[in-house]
Amino acid sequence: MTMSPFEHQPDETLGRLLREHLTGPAPEAFLREVRVAVAGAPRADQWDVLSGWARPRTMALAVAAGFLLWLGAWFADSTSPIDVDAGVSVASSLPAHTVMSAQPPAAAEIMAAMRGDRRSPRR
């Protein structure tokens, strides 16, 4: 073997030993098997490549579109106008003195107005 490990040429003795050790049994039969396996394997055509590329991206696009739809629906909900009618209806059911007073109405009066009970709660 080469005495210096710094030698920049292949070590012929060590190389031969390694080749003998690693080549394995029946190399010709092995090569034949690999050739047969490759010959029986179809090459991926361009459409296969394209579909392989497209599949994950189509899924990603579908997920992104779903997320955008959900986001749009969520924004539409949160920016919808306040139900003014309901507020007006409650306010119109309040006894007149609560509307005219500078003091805010008592919770019981608001609850009674919401129930549609026009009588003033007993104080």
């Binding site: 080749r19 080549t23 394995g24 092995f30 090569l31 690999v34 050739r35 490759v38 010959a39």
Partner: peptide
């Protein structure tokens, strides 16, 4: 197949 013949055994040694 000819490329396999030329490089297959070296590939086998590397894999082993």
């Amino acid at each position: 197949g000819r490329l396999i013949d030329q490089h297959g055994i070296a590939a086998r040694r590397a894999a082993r």
